[in-house]
Design a protein around this nucleic acid. Sequence first.
DNA 1: GCGATATTGAACTATTTAGTTCTTTATCGG
DNA 2: CCGATAAAGAACTAAATAGTTCAATATCGC
Lengths: 184, 184
Amino acid sequence: MGRPKNFSREEVLEKAVPVFWKHGFADTSLQELERATGVNKSGLYTEFRDKEDLFVACLRHYLESQEKRGFLTREPFGWKNVETFLKIGPLNKGEQQGCFSVNSMREFAILPSEAYGVVTENRALLQRLLAMNIEAEKPRMAPSAIAEMVLSFFSGLCIERNLKSGKTSSTRKIENFMAALRSL
Amino acid sequence: MGRPKNFSREEVLEKAVPVFWKHGFADTSLQELERATGVNKSGLYTEFRDKEDLFVACLRHYLESQEKRGFLTREPFGWKNVETFLKIGPLNKGEQQGCFSVNSMREFAILPSEAYGVVTENRALLQRLLAMNIEAEKPRMAPSAIAEMVLSFFSGLCIERNLKSGKTSSTRKIENFMAALRSL
DNA sequence: GCGATATTGAACTATTTAGTTCTTTATCGG
DNA sequence: CCGATAAAGAACTAAATAGTTCAATATCGC
């Protein structure tokens, strides 16, 4: 069976995500990835085809972990879920600000096309989950139309996390937005 | 007086903006900038301190040109101006998608701190102009609070321009959002 | 413990990068 | 038209980059 490797794919992804998250694809070097993951280039290249492949794997891993948080699938469905999603969906843990996926959208021009697919599929999923929660509140406006707005607002909140503004102001802003939604 | 240079600072900025806009700072090479502007490195380096300096100059130039479009200063102030701002503020000219300034927010980690200042100042200005227009409609909610929401929504629309989605869906989304605002 | 096997680490490669330097060239004032 | 001056062009530098190669090494089944 030969020598066993002393890292797991999961482990590497876990540690690589914050690096790409903060610096993006272009400005992240293999050296940084080695340092952050503790895995040598040899290891990284046996596990991943190249830097692009590793990036896409990170993106998938990130989105799966976000899905597991399940803010939009908690019963009962409704505005409360939407509000939670907006409030604590975008992360605020040190280097990890906003949403890795939204950040990546800026870099599509230089990212493998696979990344585009991963992000758009996830957005479609979010859109459906949002619509499901909105549907439950029986608003006058079409749930899918409201869901679209929410997703855009969410994307805005995410990139704004790159600005150092207070958490309270963000919370207040979300509550105002929710007030507007509830009247639809 | 010596040999006269055969380019103007304006010209260079005009041609460099789309390059940074599309590729961001990290992934734009001096070579690309030479090609796009038609100005040799010698020329670029006599006009600008370094790549960072050129980038910040591009950002300023872009924001000034956006201000000149003046969507938010047309009389009479009101929802119509806000709607116009959302609809045709984010550009859609080939490589130039969304907003250069919003795109740049993703890269603050590697951008000169000056860039941060330029962007935040501009956002503060937008915030004031939006509030001014909203104020004119005398809504029940605080104009500055509504302005905050609009700016976040705008930011979201801008990064979403990196996805290839139809223009009509964006227009419909904005109209729905405006409907929500008008009820505040 | 031994040999096959797979991982690891480090040295290496080829390319690209931002930035510099130096020669050539064009213009203007006299 | 000539000499001072400033710009343009190209050659150059040093560092960083993604990716490769290969010898050293650790483990497992036997």
